[in-house]
């Protein structure tokens, strides 16, 4: 153990994990290439009981350099993945000899707004689908290609490309479809469930301590509007379920499987918590 981690250990033992340091998110507006994004919105009122009056984008909690990197689509390295995603969109795969474009044409037209409305009820599967599950359903049923494995590079880049077509459009999911409300409720229960040796729920950090510092991290509300998001730590795009699993792992609990019912319910609930915020994919975070 080096001196620094020892010092950190001593410091942590002597102080509460969440420091008293608090900083309001910045009062700035995000324009990506001059296009205004909605980074603050009144919390959704239906169903009632949203914990915040105003939902805020994680962008507001980041340092100036990180914010600037997202505001210029050229400087945003996540756009390299979006460009790769466009290539995947146009690549023929599978026995049916089709690409995404074979059925859906120009994504700029056909996918506009789609990413803002997911996760979405899928009647055939009897559960909500996110973009990744919808892509896999298209691949197996239409393209006769293999479903992507979780976090395959093509899956992340294609998802980012599709969601990027909704850049700026506010998140709004349809909770009236099918059984969405019961998934919402399950997701809500999961959000407040404490797990792991740290005994943290999602709400421990992103609701009760949103705005506080957890050591050097300025805790955001944990909204999903910027995923897949470019994280400086990984220097790559990170999918939402990857981050869900990372958060749960960090509570020292066994993370649920990606796209499991548990995490799909959580995705429905978290998407609702951030309704009204612009899709920022690919956002840039720490």
């Amino acid at each position: 153990m080096n001196k620094r981690t020892l010092a950190a250990l001593v410091l942590l033992c002597a102080s509460p994990l969440f420091t008293a340091a608090r900083a309001e998110p910045v009062a700035e507006t995000l324009e990506i290439d001059g296009e205004a994004m909605i980074t603050e919105a009144p919390a959704p009122k239906d169903p009632p009981g949203h914990p915040f009056d105003v939902v805020k984008s994680g962008w507001l909690y980041r340092e100036p350099d990180t914010r600037a990197m997202e505001a210029d689509s050229f400087e945003n390295p996540g756009m390299l993945n979006v460009e790769r995603g466009e290539e995947v969109w146009n690549t023929v795969e599978g026995e049916a000899g089709k690409s995404c474009a074979s059925c859906h044409g120009d994504a700029a037209k056909t996918m506009k707004g789609v990413g803002a409305s997911y996760p979405k009820w899928n009647a055939k599967a009897g559960k909500p689908f996110d973009i990744e599950l919808q892509i896999n359903a298209c691949r197996t049923a239409q393209m006769k290609a293999e479903a992507y494995k979780f976090d395959a590079r093509d899956q992340v880049d294609l998802t980012a490309y599709i969601k990027h077509q909704s850049l700026g459009i506010p998140v709004k999911i349809d909770l009236s479809a099918g059984d969405m409300m019961s998934w919402w409720q399950t997701g809500k229960d999961r959000y407040y469930l404490r797990t792991g040796q740290l005994n943290f729920a999602c709400a421990s950090c992103h609701e009760k301590n949103s705005g506080n510092y957890l050591r050097a991290d300025h805790l955001s509300q944990g909204n999903s509007n910027g995923f897949p998001t470019y994280r400086l730590k990984q220097s790559n795009l990170v999918s939402l379920h990857n981050r869900f699993r990372g958060c749960v792992r960090d509570t020292r609990a066994e993370p649920p499987k990606a796209f499991s019912d548990e995490l799909m319910a959580l995705e429905v609930y978290v998407a609702w918590r951030g309704e009204g915020l612009s899709v920022e994919t690919p956002a840039v975070r720490q």
């Binding site: 050229f74 400087e75 390295p77 390299l80 993945n81 790769r84 220097s235």
Partner: peptide, 8 residues
């Protein structure tokens, strides 16, 4: 001029 290249 700005340049960016994907590389690990």
């Amino acid at each position: 001029i700005k340049t960016l290249i994907s590389h690990d």
